[in-house]
Design a protein around this nucleic acid. Structure first.
Lengths: 151, 151
DNA sequence: TATAAGATATTGAATATTCAACAATTCCAT
DNA sequence: ATGGAATTGTTGAATATTCAATATCTTATA
């Protein structure tokens, strides 16, 4: 009986004990909160990521960018299309490898990025205050390690 | 100079330092790995979640279920439509509140759920082995706390 | 150097998700 | 009781994402 219970415990762990589920839940919640903040500028989270990456002023290829902002290629292409329409970013062909397209941030994009960074930063601050500085840092380091191993 | 550097460090934290980003990245990666395993049964992650929740045999309303499986209502409705077509689950009107629909798992759904649980459990085991038991447990507890505060 | 293989980005069709509106039922205040 | 507000779930149109196919360019090889 004890044995079969142990076995059933193994197999029937509630869904809330699965790491994949906890990650999905936490990510969903935190990203929703970020979304609320960024909606002040009418910008989805993915566009903030794109602008943040591009605001280093250097050109980033679509592939590189897709990886950095956690979007797959076709999705990124279409999101960039929208952002080009809004004059936030622009495409330039890479002179060294003409298969590649290098993405750049316009001045308008950079200005928006700055405002978005403030909103995102305020969320970080809010989390650190409510959840605790120590816990937040611990969580970040654990996530970094997990990503490193899992990648 | 030191002052302006500190300031710029605050404002210009790389995107990889944002909790929202780390969570999205980790969740994406771990869920992709789970997806690979579950594809052995041709089932998306969300359907595993649904089957897992319903396999307690009790009826769950759509709202309750949507919350539990991290899907919003219209998305869940349409996914349930597909699962009903596959005879994995079925709807029953709640006799106590006829606005509600109670979802149940069919025998076929329960059998599938068992096979999926094995696949999901094997991922948990794999993570615990590669990432470390201690780190995995720490991470889970931190995520649970975060979700509790953030909800 | 010519050609095949690989890399990069985009496109269009198929699929899935979301938003807003709706229908049905229950709850509550009068 | 009864009419308005709130809750629950679904629908259809608009939007977004994904998959497979394509076009373009580079690299390696023979």
């Amino acid at each position: 009986m004890a044995k079969s219970q142990a076995k059933s415990q193994e197999k029937n762990a509630p869904i809330t004990e699965h790491l994949a589920y906890l990650l999905a839940q936490a990510s969903r919640e935190i990203n929703r909160q970020l979304e609320v903040r960024l909606s002040q500028e009418g910008v989805p989270v993915e566009q903030w990521r794109i602008l943040k990456v591009l605001s280093d002023g250097k050109g980033h290829s679509m592939g590189e960018l897709a990886e950095a902002v956690l979007l797959n290629h076709p999705t990124l292409t279409k999101m960039i299309d929208r952002m080009v329409s809004n004059s936030l970013v622009y495409r330039l062909q890479d002179p060294d490898d003409r298969r590649k397209v290098l993405m750049y941030c316009s001045d308008r994009g950079k200005a928006l990025a700055q405002r978005l960074n403030l909103l995102a930063q305020s969320q970080e601050t809010h989390i650190a205050e409510n959840y605790g500085n120590r816990a937040t840092e611990d969580l970040k380091r654990l996530l970094e390690n997990l990503i490193e191993r899992a990648g």
